[in-house]
Lab assay of single mutants.
Amino acid sequence: MISLIAALAVDRVIGMENAMPWNLPADLAWFKRNTLNKPVIMGRHTWESIGRPLPGRKNIILSSQPGTDDRVTWVKSVDEAIAACGDVPEIMVIGGGRVYEQFLPKAQKLYLTHIDAEVEGDTHFPDYEPDDWESVFSEFHDADAQNSHSYCFEILERR
């Protein structure tokens, strides 16, 4: 099963200049909980913004210009990325925008964090048809001392 995991502000903004323009430790914990011990696929820009392999996960970098870091697996196509994951129950696609666009048609599940923030962004989550998805989990949280904005975790499964 292919799943996408993303944090989205208003207007589906997911990033600005290779960074997330908010401070939500709870979302980072949600991300870790849902990706640990699963292969993660990301684009080169996302890889560069993280700066290191995510521990406890097979890191697969999709790029037309593969790098030389041998701590991760470099691939040039969506099919190659899927094959590099091996026989696993769930593959997690973690961004960025172009990689989400490439995998959305193949995805069966979306793990979304909806952030109540209007922020400037240069990267967006692809538009998706809500009628194609069923919400199977939703959990709202107010902003607090650690988390700069209110947010809602949601899991959607393709109908």
Rank of each mutant, 00 (worst) to 15 (best):
V10R: 01
A26W: 02
F137P: 00
T46C: 06
V40W: 00
Y128I: 13
P89Q: 09
S135Q: 13
Y100W: 09
R159E: 10
E101G: 09
G56E: 08
Q108R: 10
G56V: 07
A143Y: 08
K106Q: 07
G51C: 12
N37W: 11
P126F: 02
S64N: 14
L36E: 07
V78T: 13
E139R: 06
D116T: 13
T73D: 08
A117M: 07
M92T: 11
Y151S: 05
Q65F: 12
K58T: 08
E101A: 09
M20Y: 01
L4I: 15
S138Y: 06
I94G: 01
I94N: 00
I50L: 15
T68Q: 14
Y111W: 04
P126C: 13
Y151N: 03
L156S: 07
P130D: 11
D131P: 10
G97L: 02
C152R: 13
F103N: 00
H124R: 12
C85Y: 05
E17S: 05
Y100N: 00
H149F: 00
Y151K: 03
R44V: 06
W30N: 13
Q108I: 06
P126I: 09
H45W: 06
E157F: 06
K109F: 12
S148E: 00
I5T: 00
A19E: 04
G97Q: 11
G51V: 11
A145M: 08
Y128E: 03
S49N: 03
V72N: 08
K106H: 12
Y111V: 10
F140A: 13
M92P: 00
R44Q: 07
R98M: 03
F103L: 07
Q65M: 06
S3G: 00
T123A: 15
L36T: 09
Y151C: 14
N37A: 06
R159L: 09
I14K: 14
Q146D: 10
A9K: 00
Y151Q: 13
G51R: 12
S138T: 10
Q65C: 15
E139F: 06
F153Q: 03
S135R: 15
E80A: 07
D127S: 12
I5H: 01
A84H: 12
M92L: 13
L36C: 03
P126G: 04
V88A: 12
P130T: 12
Q108D: 07
S63Y: 03
Q65V: 14
D142R: 08
I155A: 03
F140K: 14
E120V: 07
M42W: 00
F140T: 13
S148D: 03
M42T: 01
A117T: 05
E134F: 09
H141S: 05
L156E: 00
V13L: 05
A9W: 02
E120A: 04
L28Y: 14
P89T: 10
E134S: 08
G56N: 10
